[in-house]
């Protein structure tokens, strides 16, 4: 029995180790946008898109330039409740376009319902359920999504926040060290991160 275990351990140790692939988010984004354009989504320049939930009619969705779409966001281009009319109209369906203006950000797990138009320079908060017409520079949060004010106020506050950094180009480890130090996080080793190399 011991020899069998020893053989398995040796076999495991002798297996070639697979390097974790380094994710190139820019390349993944470009690939995703190319796939979505093939499916008919109209996408402007400079967009960053982390979802592929563009419903069964992706060609009804249009995104402007520099639109950010976080993970889990869902664009719904049809209202499946039309099925409730199928006793009298057996093949009935209902659809709506979704249009998003330039320089707008749509937060994690938001849902945009059919017939929604979001203006330019808007912020859609995480988890918002958005419908209807959203004017330029709106901040929308909640379910049902409500316009609570100007998106530009949030950006001005963020601009002046001590928690805002120019860190996009930093290496992962450098950013981790910086943030641990900034937020006073001590690693499990017990040493404050600022003392680590």
């Amino acid at each position: 029995m011991w020899s069998a275990i020893k053989r398995r351990v040796q076999a495991f140790l002798s297996e070639p180790k697979v390097e974790e692939p380094v994710l190139d988010y820019r390349a993944l984004n470009e690939q995703r946008i190319a796939r979505l354009r093939e499916r008919g989504v109209r996408i402007g320049e400079g967009c960053l898109i982390y979802t592929e939930e563009f419903s069964t009619e992706p060609y009804l969705v249009e995104l402007g330039n520099r639109v950010g779409v976080a993970g889990g966001v869902c664009f719904l281009t049809h209202d499946a409740s039309a099925m409730l009319m199928r006793a009298t109209r057996p093949t009935v369906q209902h659809f709506g376009r979704i249009v998003v203006g330039n320089n707008t950000y749509i937060g994690q797990n938001s849902i945009l319902l059919p017939g929604t138009t979001v203006g330019a320079d808007c912020l859609i908060g995480a988890g918002a359920v958005v419908r209807g017409q959203v004017p330029d520079n709106s901040l929308v949060i909640g379910n049902p999504g409500k316009i609570i004010g100007r998106a530009s106020i949030v950006l001005e506050r963020m601009q002046n926040s001590p928690d805002t950094f120019d860190s996009l180009q930093m290496a992962y480890d450098d950013r981790r060290l910086m943030l641990e130090k900034h937020f006073g996080i001590v690693r499990d080793s017990g040493e404050p991160s600022s003392e680590q190399p």
Binding site: L139, I148, I153
Partner: peptide, 8 residues
């Protein structure tokens, strides 16, 4: 920041 928006 959202509270500030509501305040404004």
């Amino acid at each position: 920041s959202l509270t500030v928006v509501e305040l404004v």
